[in-house]
């Protein structure tokens, strides 16, 4: 049953990937695009190829990181935003654009550098402040407060910045797949593979973890705090990188794992990992197809499309789930 799901999702992903290459607001000759790389068709095809790859990687990563964080926090509505790492990336970008002089003197470092730096700084703060015992409720609260703090600092920065900075920052915040290039694609690929391998390795551990600390102590010898911290760091880096490349898009991380767990009726991470990656990729690819105007003809922000796609799904499944549970 799980295998048949896997096949369906792979076929769907492949179809959407091909559609992403063929469809767009501009009609191109695909064969010419592949053979004559320097033609207009070739250039457009190249940009679509990058966008499609970024969509797949971002979707898969968001889904997986969301799944991991939900398992770690034992909260089905936790997601990539829970750690506050994405606010760190936003703050980094805010500093780059909004503090006069920073983008002038440090432009050679690039925007992504600041985003990743912001995300890592928040992650570091989170790990340090949450202390030795790594109480996850505390991590949750600290993450929330870091988000608030970054929001407030950004408000202050927005007051102090000039109009060019404000415009640049606001546009970044809307999220865009236009900015991805081959280098960010490679970075994303490396981190995604790392994230997937770590999650795969810890899948069984996380499964037992979801049953409670007593079972974990009885069945494994690994240090619980060490593992939790390691996973937090991996997820933090992952989300930080995604945010720095495409802007704050995190909704996928909440929707995909919830839907999948309800459909396959299991929380077994070993089965969920490939499915989550696939469904996440499919969702973002579909959203990008719509956002680019390839389906429907309207050009929209990816974030808006994702929310419109995701919110009804998640509400439907949550209502179904709550009415099914006894208490």
């Amino acid at each position: 049953m799980k295998n048949s799901w896997l096949i369906i999702l792979v076929v769907l992903l492949f179809t959407l990937f091909v559609l992403e290459l063929i469809l767009g607001t501009v009609t191109i000759d695909i064969i010419k695009g592949f053979t004559e790389f320097n033609s207009v068709d070739g250039n457009i095809l190249e940009s679509r190829l990058i966008r499609a790859s970024v969509s797949v990687l971002v979707g898969a990563s968001c889904g997986l990181a969301g799944l991991g964080i939900q398992t770690l926090f034992k909260n089905p509505l936790a997601g990539p935003t829970t750690l506050g790492v994405n606010s760190g990336a936003s703050l980094g970008v805010g500093m780059f654009y909004l503090i006069p002089g920073v983008s002038m003197h440090m432009e050679w470092l690039g925007l992504s550098f600041f985003a990743v730096l912001g995300a890592l700084a928040f992650l570091f703060l989170l790990i340090v402040v949450s202390g030795k015992s790594l109480n996850l409720t505390f991590v949750l609260i600290v993450g929330l407060f870091l988000s608030y703090a970054s929001y407030e600092i950004l408000e202050v920065l927005l007051q102090l910045s000039d109009s060019v900075g404000i415009k640049s920052y606001v546009f970044w915040g809307m999220g865009s797949f236009n900015r991805a290039n081959v280098y960010s694609l490679i970075a994303l690929l490396l981190v995604s593979v790392m994230g997937f391998v770590v999650m795969k390795k810890y899948a069984t551990w996380l499964n037992i973890y979801s049953l409670g600390d007593t079972e974990l102590k009885l069945l494994t010898r690994k240090s619980i705090t060490f593992n939790k911290r390691l996973l937090l760091i991996v997820f933090g880096i992952w989300i930080g990188l995604i945010t720095s490349i495409v802007g704050p898009i995190a909704f996928v991380g909440v929707v995909v794992p919830n839907v999948l767990k309800m459909v396959i009726k299991s929380s077994n991470l070993n089965a969920l990992l490939p499915l989550t990656a696939l469904l996440g990729a499919i969702m973002v690819l579909l959203a990008d197809l719509i956002a680019r105007g390839a389906i429907g003809g309207f050009v929209l922000p990816v974030n808006a499309v994702l929310s419109v796609l995701g919110v009804p799904i998640i509400i439907y499944f949550l209502v179904k789930r709550i009415s099914g549970a006894r208490g």
Binding site: T25, N43, R48, F171, V299, P301
Partner: peptide
């Protein structure tokens, strides 16, 4: 070639 917050890169490339 787009409006508001959205740049249509494909249209731009196509216009050479």
């Amino acid at each position: 070639v787009g409006e508001g917050a959205h740049l249509n890169l494909e249209k731009i490339i196509q216009l050479k």
